[in-house]
Simulated scan of single mutants.
Amino acid sequence: MNCWGKCSPASPWSNLEPALSSKSSEPRSGAEPERVAPLLASPCVRRCCLDECDICLGCGRSLNEILDWGSADTARRQAICQAAQARLSQRRG
C-alpha cells in the first residue's frame, strides 16, 4: 500500500510540550540521589502530519509509537527511533 498522504496545516496539538515529571529532583533527606538513566528525547520535528498508514511524515513514527513514547523505556525508545528512521529513509528512496 502506498502511504503518501496529503496533509492539512499542522494540528494545534503539534506544538505541545511534553509533560514534566512530577517527581521531585531533590534527594530524600539522608539518602543518596537517585541515579536514573536519561531517556532519549522525542524525535518529533514539529511537522506532524499522518499519512494513510498513520505514519508521521515529519518524524517517521507510527501513531501507536507516538502514543507509546511517553511511557516507553530507553530500549523501546531506541527501537522506535530506529524503525522511524528506516521508514523515513525508505520514503526518501
Rank of each mutant, 00 (worst) to 15 (best):
G5L: 12
S42N: 14
R92G: 02
D54T: 03
G60T: 00
S42V: 03
L16H: 13
Q90C: 06
S11A: 15
E32W: 07
C48P: 01
S25D: 14
L63F: 07
S89N: 11
R46W: 08
E34M: 10
C53N: 02
K6W: 02
G58R: 02
L16G: 08
P9K: 09
S62T: 15
D54G: 03
P9R: 06
R76Y: 03
A79H: 07
A41N: 01
P18W: 11
S14C: 15
L67W: 02
W4I: 10
E52I: 00
L39H: 01
I55H: 01
R61M: 09
G58I: 02
I80D: 07
I66M: 15
W13M: 14
S14T: 14
S62V: 03
A72P: 04
K23H: 13
C48M: 04
T74I: 10
A19C: 10
Q85V: 00
L57G: 02
E65F: 01
E26D: 05
P9G: 09
S71I: 01
R61C: 05
G70L: 00
C81L: 14
G5N: 12
R28T: 12
S22N: 14
R77I: 12
D51H: 04
S25L: 15
A37Y: 04
L50C: 00
G58C: 01
C44L: 08
K23F: 09
C56K: 00
C56F: 03
A84T: 06
S11Q: 15
A19P: 03
T74S: 04
L39T: 07
P27Y: 13
P38N: 11
C53H: 00
S11M: 14
L20S: 14
S29H: 09
